[in-house]
Write a protein that binds this DNA or RNA. Structure first.
Lengths: 95, 95, 95, 95
DNA sequence: GACTCTCCCAATGTAC
DNA sequence: GTACATTGGGAGAGTC
């Protein structure tokens, strides 16, 4: 007789039915995700069509996600580093 | 007199209202996307909890997206290369 | 009196000299890295010019890095999954 | 008689010797690249040990690569956007 | 109290 | 050149 395996058999030790279920859930979700990703692209394209700079727009969106305090902190340190590296117009009050 | 700017003024040349609208649409969509991405992670975690190997599961999902013919083709060429590099158990019909 | 700062002064609390040294070391190394990365691209291009498939060649190189045993293991599990998903030509010994 | 193939035989249509040569060149270069990448990490680690903020240090290094004029331009536009989004301390001269 | 282990983010590398 | 996916590193929590 052939191996007695049901529709949820574990042929080779793998629960095929369960695996399929997982894979299908993942695929469904990934599809949804792709739709949304495309929507986002569309918005950027539309913004671009209205004269906005996509690259910088993305930066602005990214900055919005950050905690303002933390952002401030980082910016301050960055300015210090840039200054130390001579990458900023010299400090006027030191002249 | 202060610059005469309306609610959709272009202070500094930027249409603030329009920009905000774009940014908010993007943020809303990104939120949705994040929710789904989290859902996907959950499914993988659940699969892992059921004994499946996450990394390999991802590979399987990726393979499913590919055209079978193309996949076959690639696999064939890869086997050729691996053989040429001596990375395969020797060809039996050559022994 | 003005702050007494030497050539390694910590204007703003940052040791400028030290920072510059770090940055310059990093930049030098990144340059070297870029040169090598370009060399690698050239080799792939040359291989392509000799009829090899770049994409698959990269896969072969990647596989070479892996421990053979581990690779075998992963491949085995993947096959199990693919079989459970009905993505493999049917098992002959089950027919 | 066995297939008459020389040391550079094209068993299966693949020039094994040539392929090996390419792969070995690539691997050698990738090794070198890895060494340098590790060196870079070390420098960052050392900088961190000296009190520098790695994340921001990376930003500074990245900024250095950019053309100053372009950088300035981008920064200006970004500020416009942030202002339009109300993410900047309000313009004093407008109060 | 330290150490491991896991989870998350960032960064690199790859595919389109 | 851009966008995705994967990998590696860092941080944080739980355990011994």
């Amino acid at each position: 007789m052939a191996p007695k395996v049901g529709h949820n058999s574990q042929a080779g030790g793998v629960a095929a039915g369960q695996l399929k279920a997982f894979v299908e859930r993942i695929e469904r979700l990934e599809e949804e995700k792709k739709v949304i990703a495309d929507d986002i692209k569309e918005v950027y394209a539309e913004a671009k069509g209205n004269g906005f700079d996509t690259k910088i727009l993305k930066k602005a969106v990214a900055l919005r996600k950050k905690d303002p305090a933390e952002r401030e902190e980082e910016e301050t340190i960055l300015q210090l580093y840039l200054q130390a590296l001579g990458m900023l117009p010299q400090e006027e009050d030191d002249i």
